[in-house]
Design a protein around this nucleic acid. Structure first.
Length: 474
DNA sequence: ATGTGC
């Protein structure tokens, strides 16, 4: 790491201050559109704090990589900042296998096939959890699941599914649930346990522990070379429908109040207004859907591993956390309302906001890379307090899906996945063309993003995770 | 991101 490098800067925009956590190089790559979007966001009344992570890039109405904070008393909520994939996030399970156990490419193929059999990846496919009540899931999150889908039960000493998560469920005013029409309920029920498209994935990885955090790794139960499963998914059609319905309701309120910015796609409403509160309640239902969906994907992966490897294979929950959401948080005496869009909370050890199993070490912050590149297990640092403990959410896109398809050939993509080699990263798609827009060339270099996060003092690396096999949706 | 769009 270069000690002369700057990893933080404050930009004085016309509408207010923007805090950027990025190396000089990543900052220069961001471009002016990113600053324009920040200036629009900063025009939302009473905003207290706004920052960008090093992977910040242009989105709809706001940038992916935004942390935006309001005080609890005079706060605003913005469906545009949270975005369409409400509750999107990461989940990691730790196996009792070593990378060595999966060195045979045929076994990795078998595993991918087994996962695909239990997790539908096609865009209209239905899931295999029709016995689960959608209403219970939306109202109570993981607590709304039948016991058989919570195989670890509530045993506190084990790495259970319900304690080793950032949140097991949000409670809210359930009267709002009937705002969404029957066909959305129907579709969402069928979508429980499906992966979704775009950057969503299930990936089998092997971990390499970082020397600075051996003690944390040990307390998390991680060993060098261990095989883990990383899951990236969100709230599917339910979150999309919440966003669509609430954005138009919030837009009506904005017209009544005479609110607005240069960007008509940036919607916001006061907390306490009818439209604002309806959004918060429905958003929480979508967070519950996303949390449960990742849990069910993990349940299916566990079955696939047992079918393929044997009944002795374990997949204990390491952690589940989100990078697209808004909610109330507390820091000492201070209560605030925070939006994280493409930003991950990373609490340091000792912070009371950690769930009990991670109180002393800090919880795992799960950062996905792009296809064929590394992902990371991080832990928050004390310096993160300045940024409301937000770190990056991944590599961050640098090229649109269409531009990527123009630029990258199928052969180049195949080479980056080492197709045909003994160490091939096995992908579930025979035709790589269908996921060409997810090739590494579409993304920033995740290693540089991580270097910025570490350099800025927001978090440190516990383990680097290298892909062995990937299941992608379309 | 999304059973998607001017």
């Amino acid at each position: 790491m270069n000690n002369n490098e700057t990893y933080y800067r404050q930009i004085d925009l016309p509408a207010g201050d923007l805090h950027i956590y990025a190396s000089d190089r990543l900052f220069q790559d961001m471009g002016s559109k990113v600053l324009e979007m920040a200036n629009n966001n900063l025009q939302i009344p009473n905003i207290r704090y706004m920052s960008y992570t090093p992977d910040a890039h242009v989105g709809v109405g706001t940038c992916i990589g935004t942390t935006a904070v309001w005080g609890a008393e005079n706060g605003y909520v913005s469906p545009s900042i949270v975005g369409s994939d409400i509750g999107c996030g990461m989940r990691v399970h730790v196996t009792n296998m070593q990378a060595e156990d999966l060195k045979d490419v045929r076994l990795r193929r078998k595993l991918v096939k087994a996962i695909e059999k239990l997790i539908p990846v096609e865009s209209h496919a239905r899931g295999y959890f029709s016995d689960i009540r959608l209403e219970h899931v939306l109202r109570k999150g993981l607590h709304g699941l039948p016991g058989k889908y919570v195989p670890d039960s509530y045993t506190p000493r084990k790495a259970t599914s319900l304690t080793h998560v950032e949140s097991s469920g949000f409670r809210f005013n359930e009267d709002v649930l009937d705002r969404l029409p029957e066909h959305v309920w129907h579709r969402s029920h069928r979508q429980l346990g499906t992966l979704g498209g775009g950057n969503h994935f299930v990936e089998i990885q092997s971990i390499q522990l970082h020397e600075d955090n051996y003690d944390v790794a040990q307390q998390w139960g991680l060993k060098d070379g261990q095989v883990i499963v990383m899951i990236h998914s969100g709230s599917r059609a339910w979150g999309g429908a919440v966003n669509q319905y609430c954005s138009s309701e919030v837009a009506k309120t904005m017209r009544q109040l005479g609110h607005g910015t240069a960007d008509p796609k940036l919607q916001f409403a006061p907390i306490g207004s009818a439209a604002g509160d309806t959004y918060i309640n429905l958003m929480y239902s979508a967070l519950n859907f996303a949390i449960v969906n990742r849990h069910l994907l993990a349940y299916a992966v566990r079955e696939a591993f047992r079918d393929t490897i044997g009944s002795g294979v374990e997949l204990r929950t390491l952690y589940d956390l989100m990078h697209n959401y808004a909610c109330g948080e507390e820091e000492g005496e201070d209560s605030y309302f925070i939006h994280r869009k493409g930003a991950t909370r990373a609490l340091p050890g000792g912070h009371p906001g950690n769930p009990a199993p991670y109180l002393t070490t800090g919880h795992p912050a799960l950062i996905p890379g792009s296809m064929g590149t590394a992902s990371y297990l991080m832990v928050g640092a004390a310096g993160g307090a300045d940024n409301y403990y937000s770190i990056c959410h991944g590599a961050g896109r640098i090229r649109s899906r269409n531009a990527t398809k123009q630029l990258v050939s199928v052969d180049e993509f195949a080479a980056s996945m080492r197709v045909g080699c003994e160490d091939e990263i096995v992908v579930n798609h025979r035709a790589l063309e269908s996921i060409l827009d997810e090739s590494p060339q579409a993304y920033k270099d995740v290693d540089q993003i991580i270097e910025s996060v570490v350099g800025a003092g927001l978090a440190t690396v516990v383990a680097k995770c290298s892909p062995l096999a990937t299941v992608k949706g379309v």
